[in-house]
Design a protein around this nucleic acid. Structure first.
Length: 568
RNA sequence: CGGGGUGUAGCUCAGUAUGGUUAGAGUACUUGGUUUGGGACCAAGGGGCCGAAGGUUCGAGUCCUUUCACCCCGACCA
């Protein structure tokens, strides 16, 4: 490619709409252009990078026997009804009807489509396991797209789906994909952590997220400072916290006029907030209506909303106002466990199991109970982990390390689905005994366009992007300092031809611009190497500029080709 | 969906409090010339329904109303 003919609209100033480095640099470098909120067009350079990332993914996926397919982007709404996700996904699904009035949605992920593809085509255990994937545009009508490619509405995702006859075989494939994803992210030069995750709208049992570490990341990770444990804060667990000395008391009702907060109560009764039972009320939204839910925690802990949501099995949890609580006969500030658990959906944090000497609201204005033993709840009470892990909590895995928060960009998420989709979609096969079984499935997503943003987030400086050997849009940028100098231009042209025939991706900067201008562009775009043909040519030398080190190396002009061919 | 902000040239922005010639600058672009190792200089140009619609007024980029788009924070989110 000749720079003079290339469509690479670089910009000196970044658009005011961009705040993140990756967003700014990708716009300035002429990689992408925004067309509407959360919608981006790839220009030649952006597309080249995208294809290079995709090539790495393709190579590694094919190495574990996954086969590439390409499903239709427009998907029949009926499939989403079959799986029940049409409600769960809600407004994120962009729905529309065709000219005949048939409903469709733009694919946000393709579990249903993939199951539909293989059901009735794969019918025997002999055809398993099967792993199919695609790299394709997805559309999710995000409430708030932001940060350029980081959270776009239209984006490119690699989504893979595996089908198995047994859980053990799924486990094997899951591990194999995890390892492969690690290889891919390493090849892309990313610093990342693999963490335990919540499964979200996709559903299923075990799931792991691949988080690229970056301060600009939108997810909070909990990592151990001594072992390998890492988890999304939505799924993080901790070792039981130390029990402060209890203040023993008999069950009693105390007047606590106007005292509602955990800290004030703890001060009033001279106890650690560990012994205060905190009540959090939420409204759970189900497809067929809303319901009040109470969550109970120790006063020193905070509710993790995702865990809370999962405990209810609802679509959504929303806050509830004091007035609404009063209308339901509750007493804000003095709430406690209801007289009967049958009346209101209640969930207790697991650390409250067998707890005694607790203080809780009496469900009566200005009164609290002290000396409460939660054994009174009876055997049916729901005890489940609801706590948001804090920095400094002890690690649940090694029990010696302390947990820290880190920010991460979720670039991939893999799930053990089991039969979450194959059952409702009636995708079955015959096993060795001739009995019909639902496929055991795994699903594996990797955000390709988001990876590009993550790479730039981790690999840039004040001058621009810094691409690696695996991601650079062109390996070598031949920069002819002054095209009016015929010796420089001729050598540039000659090397350009040679590299092209040696199949090395190369761009020749033959623009009628000054050295500084072209150098700034080379640095902004971030080509892995720039070969500078300029002043030094008079003494028979050219320079090889390595973007990642900002270093220049003098090379004899007649040895350039050999030198470049030796670059890794 | 709540809170905040911004819409004027491809990009960055001034002008709007107090309405008043032909709407400005930098940058980018075109042409000519000089220059040629870190975003050059000189000269001459092209480019705007001031986001849109309505209104007030003799007169609106500026005031009023409505609306749309985009960005940020939150809620939300594989």
């Amino acid at each position: 490619m000749r720079f003079s003919k290339a469509f690479i609209p670089t910009q000196k100033h970044s658009s005011k709409d961009a705040t993140l480095a990756s967003h700014k640099l990708l716009l300035r470098g002429g990689f992408i252009a925004s067309s509407a909120s959360g919608l981006y067009s790839y220009m030649p350079l952006g597309l080249r990078v995208l294809k290079r990332v995709a090539a790495v993914i393709n190579e590694q996926m094919s190495a574990i026997g996954a086969q590439e397919v390409d499903l239709s982007f427009v998907t029949p709404a009926s499939l989403w009804q079959e799986s029940g996700r049409i409600e769960k996904f809600g407004k994120e699904l962009l729905r529309f009807t065709d000219r005949k009035g048939n409903p469709f949605v733009l694919g946000p992920t393709h579990e249903e489509m993939m199951v539909d593809l293989i059901r009735d085509r794969v019918t025997s255990y002999k055809q398993l396991p099967l792993h199919l994937y695609q790299i394709k545009t997805k559309f999710r009508d995000e409430v708030r797209p932001r940060f350029g490619l980081m959270r776009a509405r239209e984006f490119v995702m690699k989504d893979g789906y595996s089908f198995h006859a047994s859980v053990e075989d799924l486990d094997r494939e899951f591990k194999s994909v995890e390892d492969t994803y690690r290889v891919i992210l390493n090849r892309l030069g990313l610093d990342f952590r693999v963490v335990e995750a919540d499964s979200g709208a996709i559903g299923g049992s075990g799931s792991k997220e691949f988080m690229v570490l970056a301060d600009s990341g939108e997810d909070t990770l909990v990592v151990c400072n001594s072992c390998e444990y890492g988890a999304n804060i939505e799924a993080a667990s901790r070792a039981p916290i130390k029990t402060p000395p209890p203040v023993k008391a008999k069950l009693n009702k105390f007047q606590t006029r106007g005292v509602t907060g955990v800290d004030e109560l703890a001060t009033l009764f001279h106890v650690d907030s560990y012994y205060i039972l905190k009540t959090v009320a939420k409204k759970a939204v189900y497809s067929d209506g809303e319901e009040l839910v109470l969550f109970f925690l120790r006063g020193c802990d905070d509710l993790q909303e995702m865990k809370a949501l999962n405990a209810t099995g609802a679509i959504d949890l929303v806050d509830i106002g004091d007035d609404e609580l009063k209308d339901m006969g509750l007493v804000p500030g003095f709430m406690g466990p209801p007289a009967s658990l049958d009346l209101i959906q209640c969930h207790f944090d697991e650390s409250l199991k067998r707890s005694t000497n607790m203080i809780c609201g009496a469900n009566e204005l200005d009164y609290h109970f002290v000396g409460v033993d939660l054994a009174v709840l009876g055997p049916d009470a729901s005890f489940i982990d609801l706590v948001e892990v804090k920095e400094g909590d002890k690690c649940s895995h090694c029990e010696s390390g302390a947990l820290l928060y880190k920010k991460g960009i979720e670039v991939a998420h893999i799930f053990k689905l089991g039969t979450t989709y194959s059952e409702p979609l009636k995708a079955n096969f015959l096993d060795q005994n001739g009995s019909s079984k639902a496929f055991i499935m795994g699903t594996y997503g990797m955000g390709v366009s988001r990876l590009i943003a993550a790479i730039v987030e981790q690999s840039h400086d004040e001058l621009g992007c810094i691409w690696s050997a695996e991601t650079t849009p062109y390996k070598i940028n031949i920069l002819v300092s002054n095209i009016k100098n015929s010796a420089q231009l001729e050598l540039g042209e000659q090397i350009y031809k040679q590299l092209n025939s040696a199949n090395i991706s190369v761009i020749l900067d033959d623009r009628k611009e000054r050295f500084g201008f072209k150098m700034r562009d080379a640095e902004l775009i971030g080509f892995e190497f720039t070969l500078i043909i300029g002043k030094e040519l008079e003494s028979g030398f050219v320079e090889l500029y390595r973007r990642c080190e900002q270093s220049k190396q003098k090379i004899k002009a007649d040895e350039v080709l050999e030198h470049i061919l030796e670059l890794d």
